[in-house]
Design a protein around this nucleic acid. Structure first.
Lengths: 206, 206
DNA sequence: ATTTAATATGACAAGGTTGTCACATTATAG
DNA sequence: CTATAATGTGACAACCTTGTCATATTAAAT
């Protein structure tokens, strides 16, 4: 956690630091981001940085917390209305919301994407558990839908859950084009639909 | 390319350098691997390194070439007998061969995996084009199978090709366990089958 | 045996990064 | 209007990493 000195800073300066850090952590993996670059872009002296944060990890974990908060806030309304959805409906919803979030907060999404791909020490520390939990939740929903006769019982629950998790996290980022958000959005939603169609009905004729 | 000095080296020393480099490049992304570490592990003096290679990139590109050769050699027999396979049969075959290769050459696979995830300058230089080409080939095969009535015509060819490419590259590495190759192998093949089943028939009941 | 070419070595300069610290500046309290 | 606490600063030590180069050492050629 940042020291209180940082939290007491006026918003402008705080934002300068946060935005500078977000920019770098969205461009390179954690290990390759340099404190020197962050303070240079944020225009704060080296000494100040260490007055605000313990070290790079301290700052990074703080950013992740901010990102998580932003995402939860963003997903809030959606999460209110998922109780009656089937797993596939939920997946479609989350795909959609994922796209929306990626367009609204591309930097945040890039940071999460890098962390997801990197599987470094910090990933183990902060994401591994959540991913495991998400998988379990998905698995339970899938099993429920099997009981309801919505999903074939011979499907491997665990693997299906993993597939969905992998596809949800990877697909959004590729097609993202900040310069053309509307087109981007449409394209990504279409892609989502097509992927889900394959998963629902398969590709085999007849 | 390495300088002739390196190529003329006796096999033992050459292998020491290559294996040391392979070890590091399979553990960390290219940018985070340090020449210092490689020469230390290979037990060659700093000066020698620069007598053998231009720089880190020179060495890395050389390793990638070796890996590619190994892989092509490995896949050779398989590639002889794919002419009459449907796209899905081919996919199954390549999944299988991918698993076998990952077990036979886990270090190589890890290096390729890191490169695939990183999308850095070197990726653009050596892999981007191949990936594009693979996608095109897949797309053609899919279209052919649509004509033959094997794949539903309403499936989006491009996206289906991408999905398969993504799944083939990501799945193999996760479950890999060097300590228990046979169990690993069996588990991974089963996983492959289950994924392919979802892709062929979909998950939806009825 | 001598000369010439090829290799091997490791000290070193140049450049970069991190974390600290003594000191300057500003805010707060008495 | 001090005195005390909180912040702001940037020079600096300690540590790395890269690429080079003058100097051995070894091999090949004459």
């Amino acid at each position: 956690m940042p020291k209180t000195t940082f939290l007491n800073l006026d918003k402008e300066k705080k934002d300068r630091v946060i935005n500078s850090a977000l920019a770098f952590f969205s461009e390179k993996p954690y290990e390759q981001v340099m404190i020197s670059d962050i303070i240079k872009k944020a225009k704060i002296p080296r000494g100040s940085f260490y007055q605000y944060f313990e070290d790079k990890e301290d700052l990074y974990l703080y950013l992740l917390k901010l990102i998580q908060e932003t995402k939860l806030e963003f997903l809030g309304p959606t999460l209110q209305n998922i109780a009656n959805l089937s797993f596939l409906q939920l997946t479609r919803k989350l795909f959609e919301e994922g796209v929306k979030f990626a367009l609204a907060r591309p930097i945040h999404v890039k940071i999460l994407d890098l962390l997801l791909k990197n599987k470094n020490e910090i990933y183990q520390k902060v994401l591994a558990e959540s991913m495991q939990m998400a998988e379990t939740i998905y698995a339970n929903l899938i099993d429920q839908d099997k009981e309801k006769g919505l999903i074939r019982k011979d499907i491997d629950t665990h693997i299906f859950a993993r597939m969905i998790l992998e596809l949800t996290s990877n697909i959004a980022i590729d097609e993202l084009d900040i310069n053309n958000p509307e087109a981007s959005f449409k394209r990504m939603l279409e892609k989502n639909d097509k992927i889900l169609q394959i998963i629902e009905y398969g590709v085999k004729e007849g």
